[in-house]
Computed example of a mutant assay.
Amino acid sequence: MQDKVAIITGAGGALGRATALRLGADGFAIGALGRASADLAETAAQLEAEGFPVRMLEVDLRDSDAIEAAVAGTERDFGPVGALINNAAIYPSTPFLEIPLAEYDDVVTVNQRGYFYAAQVAARGMVARRSGAIVNVGSITWHGGWSNLASYVSTKGAAVALTRALARELGEHGIRVNAVSPGAFPTKAEEIQGDAAEYSAHVIEHQALKRRGSDAELAAVVSFLVGPDSSFVTGQTINVDGGWIME
């Protein structure tokens, strides 16, 4: 990468924080983007404690102006953004027949339009420099569907489709676009699944690898996708799920 500056959305979450710490260790200055929260502040504090350059960006992905300001602010502080990791997502658990249209619209705004617009804003600068990498975080749920998560699942499928469309269109400008689809990592998202021990057993039963994954293992794949070792990889989706989904 020519520009060692990365923006990570949803940086207050477990996977976002692990990715921020890994990319910081890789030598990136980090724009840690997320809704104002103690979790986002903790991510920034951990990066600072490690001596990694960080700008904490309190941004709601529903606000397109705030996305533009976050990218511009990061570039003022650190220089051109060379990597964008679209990670933030919301995941209300509601039976399909009961999902209010307002709830669906909200999920699409954050998980789909937010990814689209963050990529568009970041890619404008990348095109001018003919260099950059975008990683969209999907989910293995889009492969087989999960009950009570129709809004979330549909947006994660859209993230993979967006990845392929952008890889095709932006490749001529030297920009690579890939996706990672995490499996069931032990994060706060699992609270919607009910009993933690029972769900963990369910996950391990379905995985080829009979253990739970760690946040750092997902971050390592993102690190690969924004780093020089993946210089000829674009338009791909890597499942990081212990072998739950194989295709």
Rank of each mutant, 00 (worst) to 15 (best):
S154G: 12
A88T: 05
R35E: 12
N178S: 05
R129P: 14
Y199L: 03
G27L: 01
T163C: 12
Q207P: 02
R17G: 11
S181L: 04
L84W: 14
L162K: 07
V180C: 05
V160T: 10
F96E: 14
V233H: 01
G13H: 03
H206R: 15
R55M: 07
N148E: 11
G235R: 01
A18L: 05
A6C: 11
S230F: 03
V121E: 09
Y199D: 08
H202N: 09
T155M: 02
I85E: 10
A220L: 03
L225N: 01
G10M: 00
V160E: 13
A29W: 02
L47R: 06
R212T: 10
N111G: 01
V221T: 11
G174W: 09
Y104V: 10
Q207T: 10
A201I: 06
R212C: 03
D39R: 14
R124T: 06
V135Y: 04
L218C: 04
A89Q: 10
N86Q: 07
G114M: 03
D106E: 14
A11V: 00
R55I: 05
D3F: 10
I238D: 02
I140N: 05
A197F: 06
G227W: 01
P92G: 11
D105Q: 15
L57Q: 01
V153Q: 10
H202D: 14
W244N: 02
P182T: 03
A219G: 02
T234V: 05
G79I: 06
N148D: 15
L101R: 15
M1A: 11
Y91H: 15
A201E: 15
L101D: 13
A69P: 02
L97F: 13
V160I: 13
A83D: 08
H143D: 09
I134V: 13
G27F: 00
T9S: 12
I8F: 09
M246P: 05
I204W: 01
S64Y: 06
F96P: 13
S214C: 05
R35Q: 11
Y152R: 06
Y199N: 08
G183K: 04
E58Q: 13
V108I: 13
K188A: 15
G79R: 06
A158W: 05
A38K: 12
Q112L: 15
F116D: 10
R211F: 12
K4Q: 13
T187D: 10
I204H: 01
L23A: 02
Y117K: 08
A119M: 03
S93V: 12
E103I: 07
P100N: 06
D106L: 14
I140E: 04
P182D: 04
K156F: 11
I204V: 11
A167G: 04
I67A: 04
T163N: 12
E205M: 08
M246T: 13
R22I: 05
E172Y: 08
F28Q: 01
P228T: 08
S93M: 14
V240L: 05
S230P: 09
N239S: 12
G12R: 00
S223W: 02
D106S: 15
H143F: 14
